[in-house]
Amino acid sequence: MSLFSRLLGRGARPGAADAVERKASRVAAYVALQHGGRPAWTPRDYAALAREGYQRNAVVHRCVRMVAETAAGVPLSAFDGEREATRHPALDLLARPNPREGGAALLEAVYGHLLVAGNAYVEAVCVDGAPRELHALRPDRMKVIPGADGWPEGWEYGVGGRAVRFARPAEGLSPILHLTLFHPLDDHYGLSPMESAAMALDIHNAAGAWNKALLDNAARPSGALIYAGGQGGNLGDEQFARLKAELEAGFQGAANAGRPLLLEGGLDWKPLSMSPKDMDFIEARAAAAREIALAFGVPPPLLGLPGDNTYANYAEANRAFWRQTVLPLVSRTAQSLAHWLAPAFGEGLRLEPDLDRVEALAGEREALWRRVTAADFLTADEKRQAVGYGAASTGA
């Protein structure tokens, strides 16, 4: 009897648990009860994140582009068990995933969706059980269908009022690969870095809107027009409307900055200045930009942001970007791809980033070779294995 059946009060003989129950998670049914087989919708507005972040914020746009394009350009190596394969059908599929785009374009879309939404989906189109095409699907159109065991039993992709459901097979290649970033409070969906930086993103966008408003209003703080004429110190409705229209047409906007203001009829102009403390929004905007870069794992010097002296120079920042952001993302994605494609290409399939072909790590590789070459206590085969090559005596 499964835990799900026990939770629903369905009795069974003691000791009657089968092999499936012994292999299953003991808490999976608790997760399943939250959904009951109903679709679990994405709990955030992907369109808002994409619009306010990637489309309207230069820092977010550059961070996503840097990480996605750099990660998509990392070459992958295929292994069959412990033996590296010079040619492999999995690499051929990733290099030419479909007739409309190359491998770098597909992976860039996958990494971009992962960074913006925290989720990425890849569809495998199979012919006679073998994957022939791969397509990246938009996360905002996909929803997970939880099964009775707490794991997804399928996915539903909807667009234009129509939906396509992908069922997860009991064995063999799944039609959908769902990649997620860690989310501590969600069982099915990942957490976007943009959500963690949402407050900094709002501050940065608001500061940009403030600067734009200053330019639209003669690039300086506004003032007050004081009327000291008759009628109790008040302008008539017609006078007020005419004065407002003249000010907006002739004195507002960057094109009219510095234009002299001619006053008549008892009007006096009193400019309203701002204190240095009120002008501190400039520093707040720079701090928000650094916080956004931190959420995406991009060192601020690589974005040209001032005020961050954590890295000694640009080269150190670039090396940290590769080691702490790009390579971990590529490694976990390659591992997920290999696990997903293993039923079609063999259970021994392993995909790893080929660090020897990464130009940005050439300095580290050269230093490693120097240290290994100077190690007289190592044999030639041990030196080859230390730098990632097979022993020469085995012909590898």
Score class of each variant (00 low, 15 high):
Ala29Thr: 09
Trp151His: 14
Asp381Met: 05
Pro343Met: 01
Leu355Glu: 12
Met142Ile: 02
Ala167Cys: 10
Arg168His: 15
Glu52Gly: 05
Glu382Phe: 08
Leu378Pro: 00
Pro89Ser: 08
Met199Gly: 13
Ala28Pro: 15
Lys383Met: 05
Phe377Ala: 13
Thr310Pro: 03
Gly9His: 09
Gly73Lys: 05
Trp369Leu: 14
Ala78Gly: 00
Pro271Cys: 11
Trp369Asp: 09
Ala117Tyr: 07
Arg100Glu: 15
Leu181His: 04
Gly388Ser: 02
Asn98Cys: 08
Val127Asp: 12
Met279His: 08
Thr333Ile: 02
Ala286Leu: 14
Glu366Met: 08
Gly150Ile: 01
Gly395Ala: 02
Ala362Gln: 12
Met279Ala: 14
Pro221Ser: 04
Leu243Phe: 10
Pro146Lys: 07
Leu235Val: 06
Thr394Trp: 08
Thr325Asn: 06
Val387His: 03
Ala207Gly: 10
Glu21Val: 06
Tyr111Ala: 05
Ala32Phe: 05
Asp186Gly: 05
Lys212Phe: 13
Tyr227Ile: 08
Ser2Gln: 14
Leu93Cys: 07
Cys126Ser: 15
Ala198Glu: 12
Ala130His: 10
Phe281Trp: 13
Leu327Tyr: 02
Leu181Lys: 02
Arg242Thr: 11
Leu91Arg: 00
Ala360Pro: 06
Arg323Cys: 02
Ala257Thr: 09
Gly37Trp: 06
Phe377Gly: 03
Gly233Met: 10
Arg285Pro: 05
Arg87Gly: 02
Leu114Arg: 06
Pro99Ser: 12
Trp269Gly: 04
Leu225Met: 11
Leu134Glu: 01
Ser25Asp: 14
Pro343Asp: 00
Val27Arg: 15
Ala293Glu: 09
Arg83Gly: 09
Glu133His: 07
Gly208Thr: 14
Gln55Asn: 15
Glu156Gly: 06
Gly102Ala: 07
Val27Asn: 12
Leu361Gln: 07
Leu76Cys: 02
Gln231Pro: 12
Asp187Val: 03
His88Ile: 01
Met1Ile: 11
Ala312Gln: 06
Thr333Ser: 09
Gly172Asp: 09
Gly258Asp: 13
Gln324Pro: 04
Trp155Val: 00
Thr394Ala: 14
Lys270Asp: 08
Gly250Met: 07
Ala58Asn: 09
Trp151Ser: 15
Gly154Ile: 08
Asp237Cys: 04
Pro43Asn: 06
Gly304Tyr: 04
Pro14Glu: 10
Cys63Ala: 02
Met194Val: 11
Leu215Ile: 06
Leu378Asp: 01
Ser77Asn: 05
Tyr46Asp: 13
Leu341Lys: 01
Arg323Pro: 03
Ala198Trp: 15
Asn98Pro: 09
Ser275Leu: 11
Gly233Asp: 07
Ala241Cys: 10
Leu261Val: 05
Gly388Tyr: 04
Arg165Asn: 03
Leu341Met: 01
Leu115Glu: 01
Arg162Lys: 14
Ala148His: 05
Arg165Met: 07
Leu49His: 09
Lys383Pro: 02
Gly129Arg: 04
Thr373Glu: 13
Tyr389Gly: 04
Phe240Arg: 14
Thr379Gln: 10
Gly15Glu: 06
Leu114Ser: 03
Pro300Ala: 01
Ser336Glu: 13
Glu291Leu: 14
Val144Trp: 02
Ala288Phe: 10
Gly390Phe: 05
Val326Glu: 01
Gly265Asn: 11
Asn318Thr: 00
Val298Gly: 03
Asp278Tyr: 01
Arg319Trp: 01
Arg165Phe: 04
Pro299Val: 03
